[in-house]
Amino acid sequence: MRLSEMQGAFLGWLASGEDAAMRRLPLAKGAEHGLGVYQNNYRAALMACLADSFPQTLLWLGEGPFEAAAARHIERVPPDSWTLDDYASGFPASLAEDYPYDPEVAELARIELVLSQVFVAADAVPLDAGAMGAIDWDSARLQTVPALSILSLHSNAEEIWIALADETPPPEVGWGKEARPVLIWRQGFMCRLRSLDADEAGMLGYLSGDAIPFTDLCRDAAARWGEHSGIARIGQYLARWVADGLVR
């Protein structure tokens, strides 16, 4: 058997665990027992990855249901990245399929996934409050730091996540037709999370691509909320963004 064929067959057996797939492998005599070690390693590594990546989702669901959902995900979705960390990325979608009537489950998992991504996102030096006075605002350009993401949630999953992380009783599940934006970012090395209104989310979203001239931001705000209110609102947002380390 060619090496390529053997490797495809081996991975097919790892994912399926089927005896028929095992019998295709060109093994030396008595290798069946040793194969079990690889089968166990494969599933244990993926299960551990999901449990480590979604600790509050595990708490919320309970160990048994979480492991059942993780096992179904492992059956459906083979890992495709060189880093095990990436295996977490498809789990929220699997949970959304598994728990269609409990949307907070998948949203809790989305929060944890984004927290883990923000944790290792690229470093950047945010705008320093002390340096604001020296900035030429007519030519200044702003953009958000890389370690920032805005989620749209229909449930109060962020309140549940905070309570679970703080080891306090979680609130009742809440659910709304309208999606609410929730901001997740890293300040220094600390990951943070807060809700924000749709207007602030829109302005931050505007800054999340290439750097935008500050004058364009003001012009956009004036068009939305009027000259005076728009500029005042941008001033309030900017003060908070700088305090939170959101922009550079």
Binding site: Q7, G8, L11, L14, A15, Y38, Y42, A45, P79, S81
Partner: peptide
């Protein structure tokens, strides 16, 4: 550890 798009995350 890998063949095609499937990664085992084990030293096979």
């Amino acid at each position: 550890t890998r063949h095609g798009a499937h990664n085992s995350h084990d030293l096979l």
